[in-house]
Design a protein around this nucleic acid. Structure first.
Length: 483
RNA sequence: UCCUCCUUAGCUCAGUUGGUUAGAGCACAUGACUGUUAAUCAUGGGGUCCUAGGUUCAAGCCCUAGAGGGGGAGCCA
């Protein structure tokens, strides 16, 4: 007989099992006992809700009851009965309990109490057993599924772009080197530089910083594609919204201009957030309450006006604000914090790069909703962005969300060969290495566009978690690759 | 990488102008309790006060350096 004949708590709570004999398996959250009866709160991961196990010491032997401690994994067989207590409708009256795995209560670090996120981060191998992280990772799953569902339903194709690549042409940051060479004794050229001809790929390689360029190649054949894969950046960033290893979603579409691109990004974000609202009600209700409790500890002026659920609904129900970089500069230049010199970096003239304090002002104070900023100066954007007719700006877009800043960065791509190569020359990007990219402009070029979305930042927004390290199971950051 | 704050029991934290034996809540153990909801009540065990050096009659507290962590900034998604 197969071992796994269990009923999940999620299904137990969704329909009426009273009178049925079932088997449950899961982890003990708490046990409450007196002389006549023991109550166990059981969680099996299928839902944030626990299920009450009632153990009668006349039926379950004392030794077994003693080994049921917080964190232990147990198997319970028994009948589902209407509960005599008030906290739940039904419960299981255990006829037998098997200890699958003990958890020494003296050593098990998780207690039925509130732990700090910093402490839980140090025990990331166990933290998924908490309500908060269980909820976060169920929501993360729902969002990942919604991403695939959205694009699939729209006729996009999922492309797997390479994780090991020889190109660092996007200039999106420092890369992790990939090599099989002996680091203590690498083969050298006559001039003393490392001879990568001896390396595994016979050239210098690194982990991908973006699948965009390969995505563009696919879009020039399949028309509408997306990637959803790991991305690696060796930047020494120590913030609540940067990881060295993160997951990025990059749609790339032929026959899309800048406006089509913005429409897609907005619709996409509203869809996946709406999907989570519909399918993660219990988890989001818990996270909403959690976020509200967190807010209590903050100063009045730091608190957000809306709760988590209100914020999510607001984003799905209201159109994003769309303004050009030029218009944003005007707003910022005339803003109170700029006039009163409250900004650390004052906005004086067109062309300045926006600092996060400026982005936050626009999103959180001025518009109070997600903002799509478009048409940036070409000097502060990448070479592949399509040049506008004004000769000064490119068809870029950044989508800014409250609390987390930039969640999407994208653009219409430069499909005109002469403009593209001219810009590459200006930015000292070698064309020889990019021959394959330029071929798409040589053969059957068409207007196209795309964007990149940081998946963890999306999960942060939907779960209300303040630190990006708390929305990925095992975060990689400078100085930390544990687990 | 820069700025800033923090490090005291398994966890969360208190610890006065430097002063005798370093505290609380939770957790844990034992006992009590006829159905509990992070049960309750009683009793008990539990400390490299981050590390190294220094000042002092005396350091958890002051000084110097280091380690680890948090927040902010830059870079970006």
């Amino acid at each position: 007989m197969a071992f796994n004949k269990r009923v999940k708590i999620k299904s137990l709570l969704e329909s009426d099992f009273v009178g049925q004999e079932v088997t449950l398996m899961g982890w003990v959250r708490t046990k409450r006992s007196n002389k006549n009866v023991s109550f166990v709160a059981l969680n099996d991961g299928s839902t944030i809700n626990n299920y009450q196990v009632v153990a009668d010491p006349n039926i379950i032997d004392e030794e077994t009851l003693k080994r049921i401690t917080t964190g232990a994994c147990i198997k319970i067989s028994g009948q589902i009965v209407a509960s005599q207590g008030s906290g739940q409708n039904s419960e299981i009256a255990a006829s037998s309990i098997t200890i699958l795995g003990e958890a020494d209560p003296e050593k098990y670090p998780l207690q039925p109490k509130k732990h700090s996120l910093e402490f839980l981060r140090e025990i990331a191998h166990l933290r998924m057993r908490t309500n908060t992280f269980g909820a976060v990772f169920r929501v993360r799953h729902a969002l990942a599924y919604a991403v695939h569902k959205y694009f699939n339903d729209k006729g996009f194709f999922y492309i797997h772009t390479p994780i090991i690549t020889a190109s660092d042409t996007e200039g999106a940051g420092e890369t992790f080197k990939v090599t099989t060479l002996d680091l203590k004794n690498p083969p050298l050229n006559e001039d003393g530089s490392i001879n990568y001809k001896e390396d595994f790929f016979e050239r210098e390689t690194n982990l991908t910083v973006s699948g965009q360029l390969e995505g563009e190649l696919a879009a020039m054949a399949l028309a509408e594609i997306y990637t959803f894969g790991p991305t690696f950046r060796a930047e020494n960033s120590n913030t609540t919204r940067h990881l060295a290893e993160f997951w990025m979603i990059e749609p790339e579409m032929a026959f899309y201009d800048a406006e089509d691109n913005q429409d897609l990004a907005e619709d996409f974000l509203q869809y996946v957030i709406g999907y989570a609202l519909e399918h993660c009600k219990d988890d989001l209700a818990f996270l909403d309450k959690r976020a509200t409790d967190e807010e209590q500890g903050k100063k009045a002026d730091q608190r957000s006006e809306m709760g988590l659920l209100d914020r999510l609904r607001f984003v799905t129900e209201n159109k994003f604000e769309r303004i050009t970089y030029t218009a944003a500069i005007d707003i910022l230049r005339n803003s109170n914090p700029n006039k009163k010199k409250k900004f650390q970096y004052l906005i004086e003239e067109w062309g300045a790069d926006l600092q996060s304090e400026h982005e936050r002002f626009l999103v959180e104070k001025h518009f109070k909703k997600p903002v799509i900023l478009t048409d940036y100066p070409k000097e502060i954007k990448a070479f592949y962005m399509r040049q506008n007719d004004d000769g000064k700006t490119v068809a870029a877009m950044d989508i800014l969300f409250p609390g987390i800043g930039e969640i999407v960065g994208g653009s219409q791509r430069e499909e005109r060969m002469d403009r593209l190569t001219q810009r590459m020359d200006e930015m000292h990007i070698p064309q020889e290495e990019m021959w394959w990219y330029l071929d798409t402009r040589r053969f059957g070029a068409t207007p196209h566009a795309g964007f990149g979305l940081g998946f963890e930042r999306l999960v942060q927004f939907v779960t209300g978690m303040g630190n990006i390290r708390d929305v990925i199971a095992f975060p990689r950051t400078p100085g930390n690759a544990e687990f």
